[in-house]
């Protein structure tokens, strides 16, 4: 019974999502990026770390489709390998925000009282912090490097998830069926798992997708401010940030990593929109 109910819901969701051409396109681009990341060693024409100082900053050619970088490395191969880093940055930093914020929001919303007050005040404090500066200071404290960037960007989105989850829990909690379950003496964990979590999933899914987009942009901004991924890793943000010095002489150094970031961020944004429309019919125009 229940199984077919979920399947039915998924069907409805898929029919709505499919109608949004932008979202479908975004999903396809993300899928391609994931495949590229997995198959990078098989697709990339060159070793992304192999330097050739005599061919520094060559413009695109039939040999190097996207040209070579400051160390004479094949830029296409670096962008292909870079998709792994970009997806990792996005996923891990959102996971940090989601797990941290989701947990806090769940507790705050469900148990309420002093605990809720404390948690939400701490979230207010984190929200009041100017975003990029918090991330920048955190990376300076933890030391540069991809993992620390992910932590800094992730912490930044904790309060957003906490607020969203708490709000959803509060509205669900008032529903009759929860009150009913409570009256019947269901345990808290059971209520949480059976009734509240399923209702949190849709909005959290939407926010996560949109935060994936923001995470990539934030990581790139940190690279620009001098505290990002460590070379020689082929991180798009770092490539773009280093390439900006050559914007007048070798624009291909910043153009392609920039386009790569923009395309992936755009896809996450479009999929996020599509998810929201499909999951929440009230917002559907």
């Amino acid at each position: 019974m229940e199984d077919s109910g979920i399947r039915g819901q998924l069907n409805v969701f898929w029919r709505r999502f499919r109608k949004n051409r932008g979202a479908v396109l975004g999903a396809i681009i993300i899928l391609i990026t994931i495949i590229t990341a997995i198959a990078a060693p098989h697709i990339a024409p060159y070793d992304p770390y192999e330097q050739n100082w005599r061919n520094r900053m060559d413009p695109p050619s039939s040999e190097h489709w996207l040209g070579t970088d400051q160390h004479g490395r094949d830029q296409l191969s670096r962008i292909i390998y870079g998709s792994r880093l970009s997806l990792t940055i996005g996923l891990i930093s959102v996971a940090i925000g989601l797990l941290g914020g989701g947990f806090l929001g769940l507790i705050a919303g469900y148990y309420g009282g002093v605990l809720e007050n404390i948690i939400m005040r701490v979230m207010d404090i984190m929200m009041a912090f100017p975003g990029v500066l918090l991330a920048l200071a955190l990376v300076a404290a933890l030391g540069p490097g991809l993992f620390n960037v992910m932590i800094a960007v992730g912490i930044w989105s904790i309060p957003l998830f906490a607020r969203l989850v708490r709000g959803t829990v509060l509205s669900v909690k008032e529903n009759d069926f929860i009150q009913g379950a409570r009256a019947l003496g269901a345990r808290n964990t059971r209520i949480l798992a059976r009734h509240i979590l399923p209702n949190i999933v849709p909005p959290v899914l939407v926010l996560s997708t949109l935060r994936l987009a923001t995470a990539l942009l934030s990581a790139a901004a940190l690279s620009f401010l001098g505290l990002g991924a460590q070379p020689p890793q082929p991180d798009w943000g770092a490539m773009l940030s280093q390439g900006r010095q050559h914007i007048q002489t070798s624009p291909h150094l910043s153009l392609y990593p920039g386009l790569a970031i923009m395309l992936l961020v755009l896809s996450f944004n479009m999929v996020g929109d599509g998810l929201r429309d499909a999951l929440d019919p009230r917002l559907k125009n």
């Binding site: 942009l217 790139a220 620009f224 940030s241 007048q248 920039g258 970031i261 755009l266 944004n269």
Partner: peptide
């Protein structure tokens, strides 16, 4: 709306450098 979503997706320092290059240089 595509333009709007694109505006949300460009790294701002890149956008700034491009604007500077084309409209100031």
């Amino acid at each position: 709306m595509l333009g709007a979503i694109g505006g949300l997706s460009a790294p701002s320092f890149w956008l700034g450098l491009m604007l500077m290059y084309y409209l100031a240089f």
